[in-house]
Design a protein around this nucleic acid. Structure first.
Lengths: 212, 212
DNA sequence: GATGAGAATGAACGCTGGTTCATTCCCATC
DNA sequence: GATGGGAATGAACCAGCGTTCATTCTCATC
């Protein structure tokens, strides 16, 4: 509490009025950090607003309530990931499907995507999705979109390499592997690194596309 | 659970005194059902005790508190799974490592292991593990044990099939795939069935062991 | 500089949920 | 059948949380 900085660390003493969109973003970011630090079940609004360097009541001013803030946080991470994925899967610059696949793998294990905070948020909501229809719907929708895109990519790679295989099965296997690797990255980062995960993913892909 | 029905539905009116171990088991079972139905963050002791058909205060009588009950529930599922896994991986009855591997796959996608309630509990705790050292330790320990056993199995299978590969990498990939498939089974059971998951797992294994 | 619309604040409120403990009641023992 | 130890109960307690709203303060407009 001193001079006049805005962020969490040295909070400004001066009250500031900012656009709704900015406040919402600040609160969502703070929520992500809180989920990563405390877990979804221990997140409180006073923690979140303190993390954001704002006042207690502000969450209810810009969101319909705590639950709404959480849902928007989930939408934020799934949306961001999906946009990145679509950009790769629809970029016309790739000459070969296999090059596109390589770009996808690199994206999925990029520093930005595998950032600890995001992984923590992702799996925190997955853990609750079973019993929360709203979370489940958002996760399922994100997954379905990813699956569709990956399926098409794998079909193309199959044609390129002249392999006959079922794109549906292959896509499901690949996505499951990525999810599992992300879980390892989150829980045992000492044992599973991004580089290692990438190698494991490639071993899988080589196995799928080069068998027989 | 016998003549005078004790469970939730038609509660027995008579008070009953049972051994500590039985009460603990009842409460853990009820906790698992509540986690599956409500999610870890919405579980309350009054829900759990009602589900068990017992009184409010009983959880604190047989466990140190709510947190202890949750931890013991996590230990219960991980312990059960590990015992099943060890039984297969150390059963001397298998002639070939590949047969042992087949048994492992069947076990991992058996009805008992993939039971909705257990999967829900499993992932609920995984989702919180990042921020809860106690949960994290239990999960990590279970994972480490599984990894060690699977690594050895894969080394044996490699010898049997005369393939040279790195058992560490292969084991990590396999375990990640299984985790990812379980997640699909939990979240989109309409799309991912046990049979399908098994086929995906075999496609992966064939790819790994038959490549080049 | 004055003004007012409304963004931001934070104290206060009510409710929910974990924990406690006086009381009740079972049942092994005699 | 009587009895005492202690398992089980459930009402009461209290801390912590989400939400509200009277008040404060900012800044675009004039």
């Amino acid at each position: 509490m001193s001079i006049s900085r805005s962020s969490a660390s040295t909070a400004s003493k001066k009250r500031q009025i900012l656009p709704r969109a900015v406040r919402r973003e600040q609160l969502i970011q703070a929520t992500m950090r809180c989920i990563a630090r405390l877990g979804l079940s221990s997140v409180t609004l006073s923690q979140v607003t303190k993390e954001a360097g704002l006042s207690q009541g502000i969450a209810n001013l810009h969101f319909a309530g705590k639950e709404d803030l959480l849902v928007e946080t989930l939408r934020y991470v799934t949306g961001e990931y999906n946009r990145g994925q679509i950009q790769i899967l629809e970029d016309p610059a790739f000459a070969l499907p296999s090059e596109r696949l390589a770009a996808l793998v690199n994206f999925q294990f990029s520093r930005s995507v595998t950032e600890e905070t995001k992984m923590a948020v992702w799996f925190a909501f997955y853990g609750e999705a079973k019993s929360r229809p709203t979370y489940k719907a958002i996760c399922a929708q994100a997954d379905a979109k990813a699956a569709r895109l990956v399926r098409r990519l794998f079909a193309d790679v199959g044609l390129e390499l002249d392999r006959s295989m079922d794109p549906v099965m292959v896509a499901e296997g690949y996505i499951a592997l990525i999810d599992g690797l992300w879980l390892s990255l989150l829980l045992v980062p000492k044992k599973m690194t991004r580089a290692k995960a990438k190698r494991v993913a490639w071993a899988h892909l080589n196995g799928i596309f080069l068998t027989l």
